[in-house]
Design a protein around this nucleic acid. Structure first.
Lengths: 231, 231
DNA sequence: AGCTGTATGTCGGGC
DNA sequence: GCCCGACGTACAGCT
């Protein structure tokens, strides 16, 4: 990783065209050739960047650029697309390189995928006698989180969210419409399951005959595996 | 802006809980107190971070942490929520500070608004004889991008996206439902126009009788203005 | 301030 | 590799 603090301007062309006026910024060059231009504020998103795979070439400015005070031209070219970032470096204020090695990466806890696993394993939380058909049950417009059957054998489509919002109800509604056209499945009931269900989402779901189930993540995890979880 | 390269581990708790094992990383502290942990690969997104407004406090490790080799504990606390990032610094390999000043920010060019202008000006791309009624045609739930009439005088509501996704089809569907209640307009046809239309969105649109049109931005721009474009 | 739609989104998982 | 949905989405524009 190379850290350069420099007065520079930049131009990006690719999915859009954009331009950064001259100012002092951090230019971060990662081991894979990717480049990030950071200002001293804002969010974690750089002002401009090039994602890997890409290659960095450092060259001399032409006469016109020299006239404008440019000392180096950094061209970062994406390997597959024609995305390109050109940085005109005027003055370098800091330049250091560091060996970081491979990063083990972030370990997350408590996401939707895990909720889905847990509910699939404890499908009778929906009521006694429920059986799992499959997770990620495919439809023409995308997979339903869980398809199950209740004690009476009626198909149940389940949409799982960490936070149950109106979007999730809309999503489930689309799935139900499609699934109910399949004579092997119809009629299909809908269940909207989330750790927390927003009042508006509950109203909409109820209005459409979709049941709401609030999931207790900690309780479900406790049932499923008493051990595990790194922390 | 302060740049620190250090062997460190970190823990984030807030909307989720996450943990970074010990490794060598860049710790970037911005002037507003925000902190970014970057590895030497990946994209522009940090492994972990804290967005402003937040405050950084550097403290001593407790006895147990010293035992594990921790030399400093950096606690970054979000000002409004209870989001918190705790970095345990084991060894500092580089530490430098830099004055960057205010950044003028990125200047963009060429987004959805421009597509809308172009299609309004070239409305016959939808078929000969189409005429523009108006852009941003108002409805109770928001403006339709374009309202037009075809050669036969039938009203056509057009939703424009750069990338045509299912959400866009839903949006247009809501508009069509409302517009079709207006006896002066009904029946209203729907057209979903985008530079790229996802297969699932196309399936849903077609199923609802909405036509799909793929827009060639470069060709449309070429027709509309041979000159212009700042760069 | 809350809501909505966009994003050079990025990221991870299934097929 | 494509396609799709989640994300600590972030962010800008508008009501």
């Amino acid at each position: 990783m190379r850290l350069v603090v420099a007065r520079c301007s930049a131009r990006y062309s690719g999915r859009l065209n954009a331009h950064l006026p001259l100012a002092t910024r951090l230019v971060l060059v990662k081991a894979d050739g990717s480049v990030l231009l950071h200002s001293d504020g804002g969010s974690y998103k750089p002002l401009n960047w090039m994602s890997p795979p890409c290659s960095l070439a450092i060259g001399e400015p032409d006469a016109e650029a020299v006239e404008r005070g440019v000392s180096q031209v950094w061209t970062v070219q994406h390997a597959k697309s024609d995305d390109r970032l050109v940085v005109e470096v005027h003055e370098v204020l800091h330049d250091s390189a560091h060996e970081l090695g491979v990063d083990p990466g972030l370990v997350k806890d408590g996401v939707e995928a895990h909720l889905q696993e847990l509910l699939a394993a404890q499908i009778d939380l929906l009521g006694g006698g429920h059986t799992l058909v499959r997770r990620e049950f495919p439809t023409a417009i995308g997979p339903v989180d869980i398809l199950a059957r209740d004690a009476a054998g009626v198909a149940v489509a389940i949409e799982i969210k960490r936070r149950g919002d109106i979007d999730g109800v809309e999503q489930l509604t689309r799935y139900l419409e499609l699934l109910n056209r399949d004579p092997h499945l119809a009629p299909v009931r809908g269940v909207f399951a989330a750790q927390e269900i927003k009042p508006q989402a509950r109203v909409l779901a109820t209005d459409r005959g979709i049941a709401c189930v609030v999931l207790d993540y900690d309780a479900m995890r406790g049932v499923d595996d008493v051990d595990s979880r790194l922390f």
